[in-house]
């Protein structure tokens, strides 16, 4: 096996900003984003394409950054979690996730938000089944997923200018049945 690897350089276009970086050619986009560009919002949970935590968008398509060489990302349009907000305004997905408690520890959330963004761009009014399928490559151990699905529906409504909100029982206890004697 080779002891030393080749170093390469690239200008990566990330969230519409150019990053000129030098990195070993065997380094993945995940490693270069986090370690060369300082964009640590993209997380990792397995580095084998099994959990979705490292998902980013490349030319609008969701991609597992742990399975893509940074060298392959040179002239492409990369979007990461850091680019989701516009100036200081949250994207509707971010607002919905924060307000609905769809994020608990928050570690898997950047990847999920990027998948959700790609979904909403393709399908502004997704069904529950479409949301579950679009996000099904992303594992979360905190939330139990249902609240995330609801948050995506809420965000989709916000983005469409629809005033639909999640039902009251998403925020409060379901009404207790009248206690029997």
């Amino acid at each position: 096996m080779k002891a030393r690897s080749t170093t390469t350089t690239a200008v990566l276009k990330i969230n519409d900003e150019d990053h000129a970086v030098a990195f070993p050619v065997h380094h993945t986009l995940l490693e270069v984003l986090r370690e060369e560009c300082g964009l640590t919002g993209t997380k990792h949970g397995c580095e084998l394409g099994e959990c979705g935590a490292c998902a980013v968008l490349v030319d609008g398509e969701p991609v597992l950054s742990c399975l893509m060489l940074a060298a392959e990302a040179g002239d492409r349009n990369i979007e990461t979690i850091e680019g989701l907000q516009r100036n200081n305004d949250l994207h509707p997905l971010q607002t919905a996730f924060a307000d609905l408690g769809a994020t608990q520890c928050g570690y898997c959330i950047p990847g999920i938000l990027m998948l959700a963004k790609a979904l909403l761009e393709r399908e502004p009014d997704p069904s529950e089944g479409q949301i579950r399928e679009a996000l099904s490559g992303n594992l979360c151990r905190c939330t139990g997923y249902n609240r995330i699905v609801l948050a995506v529906q809420w965000a989709a409504a916000m983005a469409r200018g629809d005033d639909w909100r999640p039902p009251p029982e998403a925020f409060h206890s379901t009404s207790l049945p009248q206690a029997s004697a």
């Binding site: 850091e82 949250l90 924060a98 408690g101 928050g106």
Partner: peptide
């Protein structure tokens, strides 16, 4: 909204 909610959705 949880107090760390915003930082958890912005990376």
């Amino acid at each position: 909204r949880r107090v760390d909610g915003r930082t958890k959705v912005t990376g």
